[in-house]
């Protein structure tokens, strides 16, 4: 009797085991935690963003949200603040991306030299990237006040002696500087690993042909790291469009995008409307437009990249 039960047990075990051990069962079992979270915390919100964008929906009365077609989109496209916000986003990217890319490459070349203490410099250049945007913005707000040694120094190059983040002409540039300061450490690290893979004999051959250091840089280094440049440019472009923390920090108690909307971007535009004003429908429509802008830019960059290669 005992032997029989044992046999049944073993049979049952192996039957369970076959199911549990099948690729199908294990595959779905392993993907399940991810899929459950994804459906609830990505797919559903993603669809909601589109659905709400066609509704007159307020956070306080979401049950009574009603379908209003494209009205939110029409209102946004009629709002000249939105165009200003798009322009500001583009301005940040156009200023910050080339500067941080060039600076990243320059710093990578500097710490790739055969010199003492290059590890320390690498760390110094990289640390801004790992500190929080809020901390860096806070420090820079103290540094870029009217009359400090930093604003006076910039004054030598023709910049006004003003409190940068509170000045409508300088605030956006201030945000771009913050982004550059933190992002170029990342670009440096990415470039550095590429520089270390440039074959040494390329430079030796260049020297034999009498190429100057600048020519070696121009005709050996730059072409060699070209794929990395595309990566660095596309990553920082996308991140540049998503800047939020720095602007939130300089806006303090005022509306996002202070002073007087000078740093209002597509991101702060949707955040101000959707979350601060709780106008879920209007904010969602702005988010959808933001999404399409990002998609168009990603597409254009991909196209450019494919053409160049």
């Amino acid at each position: 009797m005992a032997a029989y039960e044992n046999k049944v047990n073993r049979k049952k075990q192996s039957w369970i085991r076959t199911i549990v051990d099948s690729d199908f069962a294990v595959g779905w079992l392993f993907a399940l935690p991810f899929l459950v979270l994804w459906v609830w915390w990505f797919l559903y919100p993603f669809l909601q963003s589109f659905i709400r964008s066609f509704q007159d929906a307020n956070f306080a009365s979401l049950d009574q949200a009603k379908f209003i077609g494209f009205q939110n989109y029409v209102n946004i496209l009629k709002d000249h603040e939105f165009y200003r916000a798009v322009l500001h986003s583009l301005e940040i990217v156009v200023i910050a991306v080339p500067v941080q890319t060039i600076l990243g490459l320059l710093m990578a070349i500097l710490v790739n030299q055969k010199i003492k203490g290059k590890g320390i410099f690498r760390t110094v250049f990289f640390i801004p990237y790992i500190t929080s945007q809020i901390a860096v913005t806070t420090v820079f707000m103290m540094l870029f006040k009217q009359g400090t040694f930093v604003t006076k120094f910039f004054g030598l190059f023709g910049f006004g002696n003003v409190t940068w983040y509170a000045d409508t002409h300088y605030a956006l540039l201030f945000v771009a500087i913050l982004f550059i300061f933190q992002q170029c450490g990342f670009s440096m690290i990415v470039y550095l690993s590429a520089l270390q893979e440039v074959p040494k004999d390329l430079y030796e051959a260049g020297q034999m042909d009498g190429a100057s250091k600048w020519e070696q840089f121009r005709y050996i280094t730059v072409p060699y790291v070209k794929p990395i440049t595309f990566f660095v440019v596309s990553v920082s472009t996308i991140l540049g469009f998503q800047i939020y923390d720095q602007i939130a920090a300089i806006s303090r108690y005022g509306a996002l995008g202070s002073p007087a909307g000078a740093t209002n971007t597509v991101v702060t535009y949707f955040y101000q409307n959707g979350i601060r004003y709780m106008n879920i429908g209007y904010g969602s429509a702005a988010v959808v437009l933001f999404f399409f802008i990002i998609m168009i830019i990603t597409f254009l960059q991909k196209k450019l990249l494919d053409d160049k290669e």
Partner: peptide
């Protein structure tokens, strides 16, 4: 593992990677 639906899940992972979080912030 080799199972029906794997391609779909892979596609989900890759597509989600490309969507900025801002896109779903309000509904979240």
């Amino acid at each position: 593992l080799d199972f029906a639906g794997k391609k779909l899940i892979y596609w989900i992972v890759v597509a989600t990677m490309m969507v900025p979080y801002h896109m779903i912030l309000i509904p979240v």
